[in-house]
Amino acid sequence: RDEMEEWSASEASLFEEALEKYGKDFNDIRQDFLPWKSLTSIIEYYYMWKTTD
């Protein structure tokens, strides 16, 4: 399955904003920016995001 497909463009930009603010503190990212996403989903997205450019 492709996690990228499940993320909207606005969620992707929220994620990048959160990453700038918190770094890899995924709990804070989830709490402040993406509370409707699971922690697992955020972490999986991060690793996919990191490996695609």
Rank of each mutant, 00 (worst) to 15 (best):
M4R: 12
K37N: 02
M48A: 12
D53R: 11
K21I: 08
T51W: 02
S8R: 00
W49A: 12
M48F: 14
E3H: 09
D53H: 14
E44C: 02
E5V: 04
Y22Q: 00
S13Q: 13
I43W: 06
L19H: 07
K50L: 07
E11P: 00
Y47I: 01
Y45W: 06
S41V: 02
R1Q: 10
Y46N: 01
E17A: 05
I42H: 03
L14V: 04
W36A: 03
S8T: 12
T51E: 06
I43V: 08
D25R: 15
D25W: 03
Y22G: 05
L14F: 02
Y45L: 13
E6R: 10
L14D: 03
S8A: 04
E11N: 01
Y45T: 08
W36C: 03
E3D: 12
M48G: 10
E6F: 11
D28Y: 14
K37F: 03
I43N: 04
E17K: 10
F26S: 00
G23E: 02
M48V: 10
W36T: 04
E16Q: 12
E44P: 00
A18P: 01
T51H: 10
S8Q: 03
K50N: 12
N27F: 12
G23D: 06
E20P: 01
E17D: 07
E11T: 06
A18Y: 04
S41L: 06
G23C: 08
E20M: 06
M48P: 02
L39E: 01
A12P: 02
I42M: 02
L19Y: 15
S13W: 04
W36R: 06
T40W: 01
S8I: 07
D28T: 15
L14P: 01
K37G: 02
K50S: 10
M4H: 14
S38P: 06
T52Q: 06
L39D: 07
D32E: 15
L14S: 03
D2E: 14
L39P: 03
S13K: 15
E5Q: 08
Y45A: 03
Y46D: 00
E11L: 04
S13C: 11
W7M: 00
T40A: 09
Y22C: 14
E3V: 11
S10V: 10
L19T: 06
Y46G: 08
S38G: 15
K21P: 02
D2S: 10
L39Q: 02
A9H: 10
T40E: 14
E20G: 09
E11H: 10
E17M: 09
A9K: 07
W49N: 15
I42R: 04
R1S: 10
W7G: 08
M4Q: 01
F26A: 02
K24T: 15
A9Y: 01
I42W: 10
T51V: 05
D53V: 09
Y47V: 04
A12Y: 03
M48C: 12
M4E: 08
Y46V: 00
Y46P: 05
E6W: 01
E44L: 04
N27Q: 12
A18E: 08
E11M: 13
E5K: 12
S10H: 11
F26L: 10
Y46Q: 03
K37V: 02
N27L: 05
L19C: 00
A12L: 07
L19V: 13
E5R: 09
K24Y: 09
R1N: 15
N27V: 10
W49H: 13
K24P: 14
S13T: 10
T52C: 14
G23Q: 03
K37Q: 00
D28R: 15
T52H: 08
E17Q: 06
K24G: 10
D53T: 08
K24L: 12
Y47C: 10
M48D: 05
K37C: 03
E16Y: 10
K50C: 09
S8K: 04
E11C: 02
Y47P: 11
Y45P: 03
G23H: 03
A12N: 11
Y22E: 02
I43S: 09
A18L: 05
L19K: 02
R30F: 09
E3A: 09
L19W: 13
S13P: 04
M48Y: 15
W36S: 05
I43Y: 09
I42N: 13
S41W: 01
S13L: 12
I43M: 12
S41E: 14
E17Y: 08
E17R: 09
T52A: 11
T51P: 11
Y45M: 01
L19N: 03
R1L: 11
M48H: 14
R30V: 15
K50H: 11
E5M: 10
Y22V: 13
T52E: 13
K21L: 07
I43F: 07
Y45C: 05
S41I: 00
T40N: 13
E6K: 13
K21E: 01
W7V: 00
D32S: 15
T52I: 09
L39I: 07
Y46T: 00
Y22R: 10
S41G: 00
E5N: 12
E5C: 09
A18V: 07
S8N: 11
R1W: 12
E16F: 08
F15K: 01
S38T: 05
E3Q: 08
D28V: 15
T40P: 09
E16L: 06
E44K: 10
I43D: 00
K24R: 11
K37I: 06
D28K: 15
S8F: 00
E5I: 10
F15D: 06
M4G: 00
Y45F: 13
A12K: 15
E20R: 11
Y46F: 03
F15M: 07
D53F: 08
E44F: 03
L14I: 07
F15R: 07
S10G: 09
D32V: 15
E6T: 09
A12E: 07
K21T: 07
D25F: 05
D2Y: 00
S41M: 03
E3P: 07
S10F: 10
Y47E: 15
A12F: 00
N27A: 12
E44R: 13
S8M: 03
M4A: 04
A18F: 01
A9P: 09
E11I: 00
W49R: 15
F15I: 02
L19R: 05
K37Y: 02
N27Y: 09
D2I: 11
Y22P: 04
G23I: 00
F33L: 11
F15W: 00
F15V: 09
F15S: 06
N27W: 05
A18Q: 06
E20I: 09
K50T: 09
L19F: 15
S13A: 15
A9N: 04
M4S: 09
W7R: 04
W49P: 05
D53I: 06
W36Y: 05
W49Q: 14
K21H: 04
W36F: 02
L39C: 03
